[in-house]
Amino acid sequence: MTPNLSTATEPSSLTTAAVAAQSLNKSYGRDNTTVQALRDVTVGFPAGRFTAIMGPSGSGKSTLMHCLAGLDSADSGSISLGGTEITALSDAELTRLRRDRVGFVFQAFNLIPTLTAEQNITLPVALAGGSVDRDWLRQISSILGLDDRLSHRPHELSGGQQQRVAVARALLTRPDVIFGDEPTGNLDSRSGAEVLSLLRRSSSEMGQSIIMVTHDPIAASYADRVVLMQDGRLVGELERSTPDAILAALSQLGA
Score class of each variant (00 low, 15 high):
154 P>K: 08
188 D>R: 11
81 L>S: 10
246 I>E: 05
143 I>W: 00
112 I>N: 03
77 G>Q: 11
74 A>V: 07
26 K>W: 00
159 G>A: 01
77 G>R: 06
181 D>C: 06
190 R>S: 14
228 L>S: 07
168 A>N: 11
127 L>M: 14
247 L>S: 15
72 D>M: 06
149 R>T: 00
12 S>Y: 01
53 I>Y: 01
94 L>R: 13
249 A>K: 13
219 A>Y: 10
109 F>L: 13
105 V>D: 05
186 N>S: 15
92 A>G: 11
14 L>R: 10
169 R>Y: 03
208 Q>Y: 00
171 L>Q: 07
92 A>Q: 15
74 A>F: 00
253 L>C: 08
191 S>M: 02
236 G>Q: 03
122 T>V: 14
248 A>N: 13
21 A>D: 09
245 A>G: 04
86 I>T: 15
18 A>C: 05
39 R>Q: 15
215 H>S: 08
34 T>H: 03
13 S>V: 04
140 I>L: 10
175 P>R: 14
166 A>I: 06
43 V>F: 06
116 T>V: 05
176 D>P: 05
231 D>F: 02
238 L>I: 02
184 T>D: 13
24 L>W: 03
8 A>I: 07
10 E>A: 05
200 R>Y: 00
243 P>R: 10
195 V>M: 09
75 D>Y: 04
5 L>C: 09
96 R>K: 12
183 P>R: 13
185 G>A: 13
42 T>F: 06
120 N>I: 05
81 L>I: 04
29 G>W: 12
120 N>W: 09
122 T>A: 10
106 F>A: 12
93 E>N: 08
147 D>Q: 11
222 Y>W: 14
67 C>N: 14
107 Q>V: 03
221 S>T: 10
207 G>W: 05
123 L>N: 09
69 A>M: 06
243 P>M: 04
130 G>Y: 01
23 S>K: 07
172 L>V: 07
232 G>A: 05
40 D>N: 14
189 S>G: 06
73 S>T: 11
211 I>Q: 13
120 N>E: 09
223 A>T: 08
245 A>I: 00
106 F>D: 14
194 E>M: 08
63 T>N: 07
7 T>L: 11
121 I>C: 10
181 D>F: 08
142 S>A: 01
